[in-house]
Design a protein around this nucleic acid. Sequence first.
DNA 1: TATTTTTAATTGACTGGTCAATCAACAAAA
DNA 2: TTTTGTTGATTGACCAGTCAATTAAAAATA
Lengths: 197, 197
Amino acid sequence: MPKIGMEPLRRRALIDATISAIGERGSLNVTVSEIAGRAGVSSALAHHYFGPKEELLQATMRQLLADLGHDSVAALRKATTPRERISAIIAVNFNAGQFREETVHAWLAFYVEAQNSLPLRRLLGVYARRLHSNLMSGLAPIMPRAEAGQMAEAIAAMIDGLYIRRALRDGLPNPASASGLVEDYVDAKLAQRAGAR
Amino acid sequence: MPKIGMEPLRRRALIDATISAIGERGSLNVTVSEIAGRAGVSSALAHHYFGPKEELLQATMRQLLADLGHDSVAALRKATTPRERISAIIAVNFNAGQFREETVHAWLAFYVEAQNSLPLRRLLGVYARRLHSNLMSGLAPIMPRAEAGQMAEAIAAMIDGLYIRRALRDGLPNPASASGLVEDYVDAKLAQRAGAR
DNA sequence: TATTTTTAATTGACTGGTCAATCAACAAAA
DNA sequence: TTTTGTTGATTGACCAGTCAATTAAAAATA
């Protein structure tokens, strides 16, 4: 029973189904049929809208990236001081929406797939650069540029690491304690700087 | 031209081939034939010695784990103070053998596969617990247990995160700067403690 | 308004290719 | 002649991607 204007709805449903399918399987080893089934359509329709599977995966990754970006700008808008900007970025990465198990699984799976796919690698590059520059917007005003760069690198690594550990032993790093660890690192570094002055 | 005593040699060659194949492809999407080919044998022989593919993967993971464990005990033996023990563990994870690109790729790929495989998940659990306890052996003597636990968790996350970032944009975090970031975190935390006393 | 034509949505059936796993057979050492 | 090492050939399953065919809404035409 074809109703017009289905395309955007179907695209969105297929992308959502891709995230949840990957989240459950824990890897990109999900068939197009499986994804389409979850979205309530046939695999042929998925190919109709997205072409080859690879494109559906890229669209899904872009969605994940867009969601994270949206949350980030919203959080940064509320921050007034540099220190608050740092905390805002950390908080975003561990909020309920981003730190969901299926989302974390999807990110991890995409990291692996990116080794084989230039488009996916580019998208992850966008993510890494954006995280870095967001962190720098809070760090650069309060310390020398070089030092800020190092610290942004360390914070980013810690966030990625907590994601990976979340994927492994589910539950252990809950959102609050995970962001607490990163905040604690920031506090320690800032205290060290203040003391040395 | 069958010569006796080939089994251990073949097993080892197949495991090495698995690591390098996964390292190059960047994912576990390597065929048994590809692996066997690299080891200079037929795929049938791989199945003869390891049975299903899954078992070959497990054996490979165990090998990776054993190598890391071996390096760790060697490094810890040379450390005399608690602070040196911490540095020893950090150094091991970023030394030339462990931080090779293909090794890093293999670890990452196994992290993803572990979501689907109980045996692999168990093996990664062994790794996580061992890393944690090695770090604790350096941290526990110099701070309260709870605090040491937190810090071990943070260090471990940072190490894992640097691995993931290494896999993504190859080159950027070179061994020296990667371990430098972690050492810097440890120094900041210890300075913070010393200052607060 | 009634009728025809075009366009969008949708799927079942099919194809071609890939790959893990098996097996029967063979070669050489013990 | 038994055991160990080894492989080519084959099977069976799975799956991405294609295509022709179907339905109904929308637009155009009479």
